[in-house]
Amino acid sequence: MRTRARFDRLGDTAIAAVTVVALGSGVWLLGGGAGAHTPPQPSAAEGRPDPTDERLAAPALAPSPPTRVRIPSIRVNAPLMGLALTPSGSLDAPPAAQKNLAGWYEAGTMPGETGTAILAGHVDNTDGPAVFYDLGALRRGARIEVDRRDGSVAVFTVDAVEVYSARDFPDEKVYGAAARPELRVITCGGGYSRATGYQGNVVVFAHLTGSR
């Protein structure tokens, strides 16, 4: 409970730093992988709308750990593993070698219950694109489905897709508490530098609109 309270209260600045470093290496880009194309980045048109807009919000679900995430419009269908905080207080990352694997912050909100649930995954690894490579191509209104251990599926609708530089990452906006069931999906982004790697993060904002 102490870890969760620290995360909710502070937004945990270290999480922003670790996602830049650990959720994408860009090493394959240096070798000209996939024509050396960087991952797609969201346009300003996909920016976050008024956060007070509660239309189409669904009632919260009972807590149940997530097991899989699907984002049909960008062909994501991946199992989820639990992620904890490292001893330094930053969010850990899924093993980079498993490119079709994402994670969720298991000491925080479970997807579907009231609050802000966090999913994170790599944009690439040394072999090429990984699970969230196309996350920046998502558009407002897209569907995200999260399978849960109790057999239910939490269905989220994307409110916005934004990109932030590492130095300007808005911790409270991304990680802060919510009064309804919300979801954040995070990977590396913000452009790529051969000298310093990825410059920031792509963040998807979504809220619960249904279940089955």
Results as ranks from 00 to 15, higher is better:
8 D>A: 13
8 D>F: 02
8 D>W: 02
9 R>P: 00
9 R>W: 09
10 L>H: 11
11 G>E: 08
12 D>Y: 07
12 D>L: 11
13 T>G: 06
13 T>M: 13
13 T>D: 12
14 A>P: 00
14 A>Q: 03
14 A>E: 09
16 A>W: 01
16 A>V: 00
17 A>Q: 14
17 A>M: 12
17 A>I: 04
18 V>D: 08
18 V>I: 10
18 V>A: 14
18 V>R: 13
19 T>V: 10
19 T>D: 14
19 T>W: 15
21 V>S: 11
21 V>N: 07
21 V>G: 03
22 A>Y: 04
23 L>Y: 04
23 L>G: 00
23 L>C: 06
24 G>I: 00
24 G>W: 00
24 G>M: 01
25 S>V: 01
25 S>A: 13
28 W>E: 09
28 W>H: 09
28 W>R: 06
29 L>Q: 00
29 L>A: 00
29 L>D: 00
29 L>S: 01
31 G>V: 01
31 G>N: 09
31 G>A: 13
31 G>T: 05
32 G>I: 02
33 G>Q: 04
33 G>Y: 02
33 G>F: 01
34 A>W: 12
34 A>V: 06
35 G>W: 03
35 G>Y: 05
35 G>Q: 05
36 A>D: 04
36 A>V: 04
37 H>W: 06
37 H>K: 12
37 H>D: 13
38 T>L: 07
39 P>T: 03
39 P>E: 10
40 P>L: 08
40 P>E: 06
41 Q>R: 11
41 Q>V: 03
42 P>A: 07
43 S>Y: 03
43 S>N: 04
44 A>N: 10
44 A>E: 09
44 A>H: 10
45 A>L: 10
45 A>Q: 11
46 E>D: 12
46 E>M: 11
46 E>T: 13
47 G>F: 04
49 P>T: 07
49 P>A: 10
49 P>D: 14
50 D>V: 04
50 D>C: 10
50 D>E: 15
51 P>Q: 10
51 P>A: 15
51 P>L: 09
51 P>M: 06
52 T>Q: 13
53 D>Q: 15
54 E>F: 12
54 E>V: 06
54 E>D: 06
54 E>C: 07
55 R>T: 15
56 L>Y: 07
56 L>H: 08
56 L>T: 13
56 L>A: 12
56 L>R: 07
56 L>W: 11
57 A>H: 04
57 A>G: 07
57 A>T: 12
57 A>K: 10
58 A>W: 12
58 A>I: 02
58 A>K: 11
59 P>R: 07
59 P>A: 09
60 A>C: 10
60 A>E: 11
61 L>T: 02
61 L>Q: 09
63 P>L: 03
64 S>I: 01
64 S>N: 13
64 S>T: 04
65 P>I: 03
66 P>M: 05
67 T>G: 15
68 R>I: 00
68 R>T: 06
69 V>F: 01
69 V>S: 02
70 R>V: 12
71 I>K: 01
71 I>R: 01
71 I>A: 01
72 P>D: 08
